[in-house]
Design a protein around this nucleic acid. Structure first.
Lengths: 259, 259
DNA sequence: GCAAAAGTGTTAGAAGTACACCCATGA
DNA sequence: TCATGGGTGTACTTCTAACACTTTTGC
């Protein structure tokens, strides 16, 4: 893992990666943002942006995205899904963003146009994201109530949402990255309702869970709740991989860039 | 539309677009390739590659892809789907490819690393691709029998195939771009069989067509065939758009980059 | 009349949808 | 005992998959 602040000629000021890290708090989808601070004529400003970085010439795109998230969260080997490139000639038109970039990366060269490759990943929101609040002042923001972000990052998050909705239809396993190790049927249902933006009938949803052979009921139940205690379930990834055969259906994971 | 050979400082030697243009000849999927010619120590070489180009600093990614295909085929307003970025640091390691690029674009600067944004489009193979054989010596190649191509273009085509298989599941309209204006049930079935790489029962497939309200049976039939003449059908895009509501399901077309 | 491809219906099982009441627990 | 959210079953519809013979045409 490289230090994103190393100053050398290996930085590539034309291409960046940005990561949309999604979390689920049981009610809403959240996205992980970092602070973009600096000063203009009229004092300091304090924007938010997606975690991201220019790439180095000696790293691949996926590596760059992994580096960004490792630096930010301490998490390694996250499952990153590349979902789109954003390359509008206008996306770096805000001088504030440009200045911030040049200072952040301590660049000698001028930044002109940047094409960014965007990645999506889903994490358990309660996971110890060790470095979260240190250097980058990262925080989870409700995805339906975002303020204006740097660059075109509002647009990117919007596209990520559309993407994830269609992604989980063929790759339901991704959803379980958003849930704790054990979860109740209601938690899973609320996650489905959030992603698909519609209600699911409780009884039918129980049947649906029963059909997901990779979701195993546990003999563990909630405690200390003021109502009937809910059963916990767990996601069995090995079973999932076996059942989904890695075969017929489209599985992007098998098709990584190994050129 | 710009001339891809204009020589100026506006070229961006760090980012390119490449287009996977798919066609269907009734039996197999075809991909449109262009010649990559040049000379090395031991004489001339004659490779094939995907149509593509470095981008200009004053054009967006989608515009660059449109330009490439306009130059190549004379076709405008093709429906282009951005499907992935390829940015391995090794993808430009072949000096032959680099030299070719520098000569083709008449560059003053050195080309080092290129991140390419790839687009997919589907066209009727019989369409008059007016400029096809002129400057670029383009031709349709069977997608299952490709020779080694320049850069990582074999890899890109492989990924495009995976992508299209999952794309048409949510966007079946794309398939009709591959067929002539009127087509028989058997032609449509063979296309499905090619894309999904499996057989479909003839009777069940007729029922399926009947359920596609946007596929209309015509009162026209084949002539001059040595067997019972097949009925022609046509795809009604307006009906399709109305029925698919542009609403619930994921529709990438609505989410273009308009930053 | 024969070779070649087109077209046509039924049945069984699986999956999806709609819908209302009792259960367990803490306060 | 009551408020809260958890859990359960049945009937109906829709979709999917399997399966075999007759039709039309050119040669």
């Amino acid at each position: 893992m490289k230090n994103p602040l190393r100053v050398d000629e290996m930085i590539n000021p034309h291409v960046s990666v940005d990561c949309v890290v999604l979390g689920f708090d049981g009610e809403h989808l959240k996205v992980l943002l970092v602070k973009q601070t600096g000063h203009e004529e009229n004092g300091y400003y304090n924007n938010m942006k997606l975690p991201g970085s220019l790439i180095y010439n000696d790293e691949d795109l996926d590596e760059a995205a992994q580096r960004v998230l490792y630096e930010l969260t301490g998490l390694n080997e996250l499952h990153l899904i590349q979902f789109r490139a954003f390359g509008s000639k206008n996306r770096t038109k805000n001088p504030k963003d440009i200045k911030w970039l040049e200072r952040f990366h301590q660049l000698n060269q001028k930044v002109e146009r940047i094409v960014t490759i965007t990645y999506l990943t889903m994490v358990k929101i309660d996971k110890k994201l060790t470095r979260l609040s240190d250097r980058y002042e990262a925080c989870w923001m409700d995805i339906d109530a975002l303020c204006p972000l740097a660059f075109d990052h509002n647009l990117i998050i919007g596209e990520a949402l559309w993407f994830v909705r269609q992604y989980v239809q063929t790759q339901p396993a991704a959803l379980f990255d958003l849930l704790p190790k054990r979860f109740t049927a209601a938690e899973l249902r609320r996650l489905y309702e959030t992603i698909y933006d519609r209600k699911f009938d409780v009884r039918n949803f129980h049947k649906r869970i029963a059909q997901m052979k990779y979701v195993l009921p546990l003999e563990e139940f909630q405690t200390g709740v003021a109502h009937r205690a809910a059963r916990y379930y767990k996601f069995d990834r090995k079973l999932y991989n076996k059942l989904h055969g890695m075969g017929k259906s489209f599985n992007p994971d098998e098709h990584n860039e190994i050129y």
